[in-house]
Design a protein around this nucleic acid. Sequence first.
DNA 1: TATGAATGAGGATTCATTCAT
DNA 2: AATGAATGAATCCTCATTCAT
Lengths: 200, 200, 200, 200
Amino acid sequence: MPKVGMQPIRRRQLINATMVAIHKHGFADATMQRIAREAGLSAPIIHHYFRNKDDLFAATMRQVLTELRDDVVRRLARAPDARSRVVTVLEANFACGQFTPEIISAWLAFWAQSPHQPELARLRRLYTYRTMSNLRAPLRQLLPLADARRVTTTLASLIDGLWLRAGQHDDDFDADDALDLIRAYLDSQIPPPAQSHSAA
Amino acid sequence: MPKVGMQPIRRRQLINATMVAIHKHGFADATMQRIAREAGLSAPIIHHYFRNKDDLFAATMRQVLTELRDDVVRRLARAPDARSRVVTVLEANFACGQFTPEIISAWLAFWAQSPHQPELARLRRLYTYRTMSNLRAPLRQLLPLADARRVTTTLASLIDGLWLRAGQHDDDFDADDALDLIRAYLDSQIPPPAQSHSAA
Amino acid sequence: MPKVGMQPIRRRQLINATMVAIHKHGFADATMQRIAREAGLSAPIIHHYFRNKDDLFAATMRQVLTELRDDVVRRLARAPDARSRVVTVLEANFACGQFTPEIISAWLAFWAQSPHQPELARLRRLYTYRTMSNLRAPLRQLLPLADARRVTTTLASLIDGLWLRAGQHDDDFDADDALDLIRAYLDSQIPPPAQSHSAA
Amino acid sequence: MPKVGMQPIRRRQLINATMVAIHKHGFADATMQRIAREAGLSAPIIHHYFRNKDDLFAATMRQVLTELRDDVVRRLARAPDARSRVVTVLEANFACGQFTPEIISAWLAFWAQSPHQPELARLRRLYTYRTMSNLRAPLRQLLPLADARRVTTTLASLIDGLWLRAGQHDDDFDADDALDLIRAYLDSQIPPPAQSHSAA
DNA sequence: TATGAATGAGGATTCATTCAT
DNA sequence: AATGAATGAATCCTCATTCAT
């Protein structure tokens, strides 16, 4: 019985398993064996769907970035004005879909590994470029150029720094706390419109 | 060719080599062989000075954290008031001694690896605790408690996020840019004292 | 070149190679490399079939003990009376199948190594218990309890001592000589039935 | 302060440490490091007193055999007749001085290792020859030649087998039990002189 | 599609030993 | 006499990957 159409299913399965394995063992110890076991498959089958280990990890991060971008795009479509576009980008980065422990672990590995793997480096630049763009565009409607640039970089750095922080589970710091903090910064740079007669 | 009292020399030598190897190859591919070669020594000698690979990396980060702390302490001793104490902590984190490409690479590996190695986790908690303390103490003299807390976490996250950013050398973003950004944030939260008739 | 169902074949192959390697080099120098070469395989494949070196040696001795037990059981089925049951057990222990130089070498390693490896210790106790049981049961039909016990332990010790002796090939002492000796002892404790008009 | 006359002290110290290390870890894992630590010395010093590891183990067994021989000789000097000479040899082999757990462990290693080390093989042959001689000489005064030979080999094998058994500490079988057994055998082959007016 | 079998390369680590002090 | 320093060789074992089925 020839199974057709397994490719997308298996690829997704293995990508998820990769993130779980990295989360459980760390990037250096996320072996093909462990990834395969996590997916309930045998190790060699991975080479059916991915060229090699580097390719698998690149595909994993490509998947993560794609979902993040899709989520941002989807949310931005509903944002009425420049300020809410900024907020939307920030919220998307801490939305639950993108903020599981496994994905955070994958991100950490990504940051550490990207200087040593061209495709990862490309993806990381893509991520940086996208995030900066998404933030800078609306900010330039709200602030002078120099300020817009400064706030953009600060927000982008804050996102990454808060991810890093949230990735360590030693205190009870979570996505909501991160968002509160980053919103407070935004408010301090761009006062929110007075919300007459309504609570937050 | 002295044959006695090599311990501190060799340990330092191997710790440096560890950072270089991680910077060159990434944590997963920083093998004992490569670390030893980087130090101009044979691989087995590492086990003369460190229990095993984990121990070597933990010692490396311990060294990095120690130097950071010492630098902070030294600088704080010369800070006249609360605000300059905050600035001092920020400056120390981006001072050139702590901000080489090799050290930044080690930090990236540290973030990614610490959840999987108890001693690393302990060191990372130590780092977080110290940085937060060093920032919070002076901030509480300048701000109400709630604000002091918020600014502390924001500054700490900004430090980490900017490190992450600076660790990727794709744009010409360097330590000075990072400091400018973070000082701008601080100024926005705590206006600097009017400096009558004097340059910075 | 069949590529499936190799497990029992390879396991047997490697177990034999283990005994040969121990016989050739001694337990301490029977490396995985040498065992693999003896089997005509590559060293890593051993870990496909055995967890590690200890597991391989334990499996080897398990195999030896299993064959010994099976042989004893098979022979006992044909033994008509108590005395012949005793003789049967003794003969089985010096039968050619169990008495090759390689197996004897494995036994020597087994004796020496069993105090330092729990699974080996378990196997050795199993062997002791089985041999004692097999001897004691028929002896108790032939002798008073105290004598049965004494003769059992003496016979078991003699078996082991004669194995040890036969394991050293410096004189022309072989399995038949060992059996003659041990039969002579048995006859001295339990006179054989007078065999009227017939030779052995 | 030049220490003179350390040689015999250190050699004895290291020989004892060798037996302890073998007893604790097994021959294969009795490393120079462990032996040295057991002696409270550093590993390289061993090469001051012994050519290499093989030499150390050979010296250890030489020491054991020498003490056994000296003990036998000393005891034989007090044996009034042929029968008591036999008994004396047997008793010496199970005397407490020769029957510590460490010495037994060394013997086990000796048996297993001697086929792979010429000097050990020589020593083992020496032991066999001595024991057989010591037993055969008095036995020939008590039995016809063929019987003397048979009883000699049986006794020698029993000694070894009982050592093996006693070397495994799983039951409460000790030197006294071993001697009782072996004496019982001797009595069955050579009835003890009627001891008029005296208890056994 | 999927997997047992297999391996070459290389991993960390330990070893016995030598050297300089 | 004794020991830190040092290493080449070799240890067991795991790795990613390929092949035949």
